[in-house]
């Protein structure tokens, strides 16, 4: 767990594959899950460290509520623990697709919570075209400017439609590969690629319309 964290922290902060590159192959994950099911606490800790924050980030992006995001993450791991204990009809059976499976549980939880909130408070919908980001200020630190960019991008993500948000959050917050996303959503991988591509372009348009642009990365293409 600490080794993985150290490896990830050594990578550039903007490296989009920092987390994805650290994910082991499905066989290693299956071995880890089996060990955790057998009561190996070390294996369980590795699973928590590997997926906990990714699930948290996905839930937080959806709900804008840190407490709810943590509760949902706990709920997912409680469910995982129950299924690994086995003995029930819905016990987890290894099929080499652990990550799509656990993130499907997380998305279900997030959607359930979102529906409950809508029932309690009415529909909260951020319409496209709202004023994203604050007006530029003359005197601001680099930290404040970066923070403003991140907040503007968060708001822009909220303006995407449901499908585009899903693909962005699964890809970036959940750090899933496109193959895993395609498996999770039961869609062709090309569709996922195209939807992600379109969503990124929409985000670009919206933050540029708000007068906030991303820092240049030297022109290297995303790979």
């Amino acid at each position: 767990m600490r080794h993985e964290a150290a490896e990830q922290s050594a990578r550039p902060a903007h490296d989009p594959d920092a987390v994805r590159a650290g994910d082991p192959d499905p066989a290693e994950t299956a071995r880890l899950v089996a060990d955790a099911a057998d009561g190996d606490e070390r294996a369980w800790e590795i699973l928590v460290s590997r997926y906990g924050r990714r699930i948290y980030a996905l839930a937080k992006s959806r709900l804008h509520d840190a407490d709810a995001a943590e509760e949902i993450t706990q709920s997912v791991f409680v469910t995982l623990a129950q299924k690994l204990r086995g003995g029930a009809e819905s016990a987890y059976t290894e099929s080499g697709k652990f990550e799509p499976w656990i993130f499907r549980i997380a998305m279900n939880r997030v959607r359930d919570e979102g529906r409950k909130r809508q029932r309690r408070r009415g529909t909260l919908r951020i319409e496209p075209g709202i004023d994203i980001g604050a007006a530029p200020r003359d005197n601001h630190t680099d930290h404040e400017e970066t923070h403003g960019q991140l907040d503007a991008m968060r708001e822009a993500i909220q303006t995407l439609d449901e499908r585009d948000r899903e693909i962005i959050e699964l890809r970036h917050h959940g750090s899933l590969s496109f193959a895993q996303i395609a498996d999770l959503l039961s869609e062709p991988i090309g569709t996922c690629l195209a939807r992600h591509h379109r969503a990124i372009k929409k985000l670009r348009e919206r933050i540029e319309a708000a007068g906030i642009g991303a820092e240049p990365t030297g022109g290297t293409h995303h790979a």
């Binding site: 924050r53 991008m153 820092e215 240049p216």
Partner: peptide
Amino acid sequence: FDDTVALVDRVAEADRGEPDTGFE
């Protein structure tokens, strides 16, 4: 396109780093 992807990644990384050290 690359710049936008990088910015989204930074947002996601910030969200993943938000919980305290006792989260796990």
